[in-house]
Design a protein around this nucleic acid. Structure first.
Lengths: 295, 295
DNA sequence: GAAACCTCGACAAGACCTAGACATAACTTA
DNA sequence: TAAGTTATGTCTAGGTCTTGTCGAGGTTTC
């Protein structure tokens, strides 16, 4: 259905912006695409052909010579196009929905470098909280959903997590923390493997001048308590997205009982649940987390 | 499909900021790069050429004379470029054992920011392979050992992994890859959670100009195969440190059977084990991995 | 029958090629 | 210190190659 040859040359000309002359020349001289023919000899292009021609057009406009790139594989072309994003198309993607779309498209094709590039730019040209709430979180949710619907694979989910992890980590380091008085420990309790929420929070905390000790996912209660005590931290932040309510309560109770009174505890994430008598606060909304951090 | 030289001199001029005159002169007088030619005699540069020219340009701008550096190897150039900004500040401890000691001490006190700082400096003032073999790997081993001896806790191990992960990730991004021809997928098979070996290899690959798709740990065979096929990669690198021999063999066999012939497979890590009739190569030594990557 | 296509050959603008001259700055040597 | 040498980027001139566009003459599609 999709690989049916259906477009004639005039149509393709309108679709790609290349003249029919040019289309024929690119075929004759460089074999850029080799469309099927009707019995009478008329050219019939597929969707794939059109995509390829668009790509070639874009690359030629950005300075490549058609003779040099016409015979490269589609994959190579896409890769080259990703390497020249600055040229015309993506100067400053400030519009968050567009950023999301483009990142998702890149993830879908496993082009992590492209995703990283778009994300880094967007991160720098947007308010950090907005960026987290409007780009990072929605993308993670969307990728998760699409995976559950079978539209994406585990490989995509891994690629996405990896990109986000690296990005958040780098962003976190943008904020040099010298404030010894405000130290926060951030981690994920035992059995909770999902660390991206914790990373987002870590970034927010670093941004607000906290000195962050980020310990990553899946850490036993004892260890978390030890880290907090040893570093004399004032705040412990936990992220819980996949635990059962019982597990969540148990872990938090265990951590809490091992901590000195003065330590604040902030728990976030979809599956956060604290025991009834706990002093730990649940805070789902990133903006509220931020508010808590800035005081 | 293999060795695509695709940029003509005008394009390269735009990419590097050097005039076409200068490009030709550097070639004629100093053989700085020796691009392939079209049948008609036109220059055709590869991505590697462009990278090299960028490097040379940078070094020339920072005071070196082109005649003096034009014939040096890529590795030497990169080394010079990395060493240059640090040379003046001499803050960086060059002595690797000292770096190790200081990082370990920082980890012991959960001072991750300090560990990061020392590591970043050391990374920039040393040959990457040396850095990996002399600092990153030994520290990971040492932390593991001390943990087993009860001298360090899980929290330390987590903190250490987190720091290293972030560091390797950032270092990987230092090498922008425009080379569409050499694509590598790097991951860890199902059940293998230990990703730091894979990250080290990913960094090496990026350094050698490979375009790296890093997928992280614990990925099922099908997914790995899908990613390789979908991205048209030439090389798959796996790291296996904690699997049982049987598991290792099973996973690799599964991956291998789902891959096209042309894809090279390189397996590293303490617990790497391949089935007897496999075409996958085992390579434990980072220097040898590097050798495999540079050809 | 008009519009859309086909092939082939021609053409002009611009990108490139080589070779050699030149200007400037840095370094050597008398 | 002055003069000579070397290193290096830029320019010109004359010729070749690349590539988009046109037109002529004929065929297919609607």
């Amino acid at each position: 259905m999709a690989d049916e040859a259906k477009y004639r040359v005039g149509m393709v000309s309108k679709m790609t912006g290349l003249s029919t002359h040019t289309l024929r020349m690119w075929e004759k001289r460089y074999a850029a695409v080799l469309p099927k023919r009707t019995e009478a000899g008329g050219r019939l292009y597929t969707d794939a052909d059109v995509d390829r021609l668009r790509l070639l057009h874009k690359l030629v406009e950005s300075g490549h010579s058609i003779g040099g790139i016409a015979r490269l594989s589609d994959a190579d072309l896409r890769h080259m196009a990703a390497a020249f994003p600055i040229a015309s198309s993506q100067l400053a993607p400030r519009h968050l929905p567009e950023v999301r779309e483009r990142v998702l498209a890149a993830i879908e094709h496993l082009r992590t470098d492209e995703a990283e590039q778009i994300l880094s730019r967007a991160a720098l040209s947007n308010e950090p909280t907005e960026f987290l709430k409007g780009v990072v979180a929605p993308i993670l949710v969307e990728v998760g959903d699409r995976w559950e619907r079978g539209e994406l694979r585990i490989a995509h989910e891994h690629a996405c997590s990896t990109v986000m992890r690296g990005l958040l980590f780098s962003l976190m380091r943008l904020y040099p923390t010298n404030d010894a008085r405000r130290r926060a420990v951030i981690a994920t309790p035992a059995k909770e493997e999902h660390e991206l929420g914790a990373l987002m929070v870590a970034m927010l905390a670093a941004m607000h001048g906290w000195s962050v000790l980020y310990l990553g996912p899946n850490l036993p209660a004892k260890e978390i308590a030890y880290a907090v005590t040893d570093t004399d931290a004032q705040l412990l932040m936990l992220s819980i997205t996949n635990l059962k309510p019982k597990e969540s309560e148990r872990e938090i109770a265990a951590i809490e009982s091992a901590l000195p009174e003065r330590v604040g505890i902030l728990v976030g994430g979809r599956a956060a649940k604290v025991p009834p008598d706990s002093r730990a606060q649940i805070q789902q909304d990133l903006a509220l987390v931020e508010a808590a951090l800035s005081c």
